[in-house]
């Protein structure tokens, strides 16, 4: 109800989370930092929308969480990919590539029949 930023943002955010978690398990704040790095200047991801997204993805069974201790000896909730999450990432990446190839092709098109 409060989020009017559209599906693209949500879908993209989820893909970014999956991508980040495919590298290593991370806690929420770490994820926020990583996503900020990854999408610098492209998407402005509010840190606040990260947590509901994580909750949704947990419900979908893409990620799971557990409490661990950080390097600084702090307790934090870490998120990691499930096998379903890995498949989802693969699928989304494929989809993304298909779409972006199409976009590239359209941009490269200079007339005539395909």
């Amino acid at each position: 109800m409060t989020d009017h930023s559209g599906e693209l943002l949500q879908g993209t955010l989820e893909m970014l989370v999956l991508k980040a978690l495919s590298l290593e398990p991370m806690h929420g704040w770490g994820l926020a930092q990583r996503i900020e790095q990854m999408s610098r200047d492209v998407f402005r991801v509010s840190q606040g929308s990260l947590y509901p997204a994580l909750q949704r993805m947990k419900r979908k069974g893409w990620i799971r969480s557990e409490w661990r201790v950080t390097e600084n000896n702090r307790r934090a909730r870490y998120y990691m990919l499930t096998p379903a999450g890995e498949r989802q990432l693969e699928q989304e990446r494929a989809e993304w590539e298909r779409v972006s190839r199409a976009v590239n092709w359209v941009l490269a098109w200079e007339g005539g029949t395909a």
């Binding site: 109800m1 409060t2 989020d3 509010s46 840190q47 606040g48 929308s49 947590y51 509901p52 997204a53 994580l54 909750q55 949704r56 419900r59």
Partner: peptide, 18 residues
């Protein structure tokens, strides 16, 4: 500010639980 309001985030996350 960066987080966007503790109460709102809490509510939105709860909503996401379905």
């Amino acid at each position: 500010i960066a987080l966007g309001g503790l109460a709102q985030v809490r509510e939105a996350t709860r909503d996401a639980r379905g």
